[in-house]
Design a protein around this nucleic acid. Sequence first.
RNA 1: GGCUCCAUAGUUCAACUGAAUAGAAUAUCAGAUUUCGGCUCUGAGGGUUGCAGGUUUGAAUCCUGCUGGAGUCACCA
Length: 591
Amino acid sequence: MSIQNIIETKVKEGFLALYNIEIPTVEFQATRKEFEGDITVVVFPLLRYKKANPVQIGEDLGKYILENVTEITNYNVVKGFLNLVVNDSFYTNFFHRIYSNTSYGFVSPKADDKAMMVEYSSPNTNKPLHLGHVRNNLLGYSVAEIIKSAGKKVYKTQIINDRGIHICKSMLAWEKFGNGETPESSHLKGDKLVGNYYVKFDQEYKKEIAQLISEGKTEEEAKKEAPLLLEAQQMLLKWEAGDAQVVALWKKMNAWVYAGFDVTYKSMGVDFDNLYYESNTYLLGKDVVAQGLEKGVFYKKEDGSVWCDLTEDGLDEKIVLRSDGTAVYMTQDIGTAIQRVKDYADVGGMVYTVGNEQDYHFQVLFLILNKLGFDWAKQLHHLSYGMVDLPSGKMKSREGTVVDADDLMIEMTATAKVISEELGKLDGYSDSEKNELYETIGLGALKYFILKVDPKKRILFDPKSSVDFQGNTGPFIQYTYARIQSIIRKADFDYSQPVTIDLHEKEKELLKQLELYPETVQQAATNYSPAVIANYTYDLVKEFNSFYQNVHILGEENLDKKIFRIQLSKKVADTIKSAFSLLGIKVPERM
RNA sequence: GGCUCCAUAGUUCAACUGAAUAGAAUAUCAGAUUUCGGCUCUGAGGGUUGCAGGUUUGAAUCCUGCUGGAGUCACCA
């Protein structure tokens, strides 16, 4: 039981005993450093139930708690804040409890709990992954890990956008200009190769437009009538009709792309439990539209198109089926959501990791699913995140201003190499071990940089200078971890026995920070925010560095103290590792 | 134009969802440790939380209006 729970119970009890009033909740905060105490009860909110001087209430409660809670050794009241001093034995007992708990902070799901499905990445198969996907992937993966550790079963998934006119564009360009080029013949990653032909299409298309305009067409006409575009549209029709040649080409080129994506996902360290392909799901949802019509959720217009009226909810009308009876984006998404629950019966909710330009779409989607009456529709969340901007402005794939995901990771690893070599702590490491380490550090820097920011906010990413290795960064935290490992390696005696000592101020601070870990994981899960974990870890590391600077560990003469400090350091390291695993960041033994 | 999101030290980010003097990092300056890894630690300066009102014992946080930025409002995905 946490000290907060103990005090909460007693404050309620005390309030009842003193004033004969029941209170529902008690508000806590950490005691500010300039006052004596470890935990603070905020008295102000209680004034709602008992009109009185907050200082007087604080005094009364403080006295009651001092008498009735053995863990509290003293108190003081400043304005409306009741500061309580917790005794050392509470913290040492707490430490004994958690020391050998390898899953400290995590909660295991109960057998009958519903699972969450977390969707992220969901790329198009006509171009490689870029910086925007990197943020998406890191967020989605991390939130999935956090939800899992907070006590829910999780399925990681994505829906691959493998069909449509944009896919036909790269297919057509390859057919016309590719001369049979393959990833093997060109030594290019498959996704890069296909991406090149997507760009090629656009270049040739623009030429045709220019040509048509010079022949007297308006720009609008030229864009619609360019032969290449007409051909691509033809190709899409053929694909939909199941034309053998087109389908074979489509399969071949998509396979190249998937092989390329796999490499990128692997170096990014993300994975999926299952995949959905739009080519399988784009026809889903039509039957639900029929059901919705019966229920009166949707209505039909004269031309046969089907709509959902959301004006009562402050939104517009939304089309769910075209007049020709074909599906739109919304139809598919409705169908896909339902399909997923069919495939995984224990799914009780979903998280969609998609950029904030689709906020409106998901608002509508969730609303419609709720209107259709699915019980899991109440547990849908759009994990919306801001754009990643470059100093040069917005990324545009056609203009070549994108930051490629693979290039970015290679660049980060190279930077890590330069810095690590300067430090030269790697004697005895083989080249492959070194390279693995550079990757750990480089990716750690990148991941931490992106994940420490609130997802809602847009990020300005300067590939040259914005990724630091000092201060509030991944490598700084990794460094602290490595240093603790170095201490542990040197402690070559049995320090496994629990000991009880008088705590140094810095030790107590560290223990308080460790105590916060479980609720931090829960908070991160409720808020879908890896940033909460990142900030917690940084605070823990700062606290440790301060401890490290102020006391001796291996140099301590008192054996019990020495043992306790080694154990404490080890637990801090374990917690860093655990927290970073939630962010998908590895920690090195040396660096 | 309607709707949604964002705006906090020079810069990058916090602030437990309404509480104490708005905190860190970075950069700058001053110091400590020269012995567990100097990628460490301590301190200083740096703020009218975009602006103006309002609610509240208390507002960066909630409400209203404005300013600036972004997104969205397709029988595209």
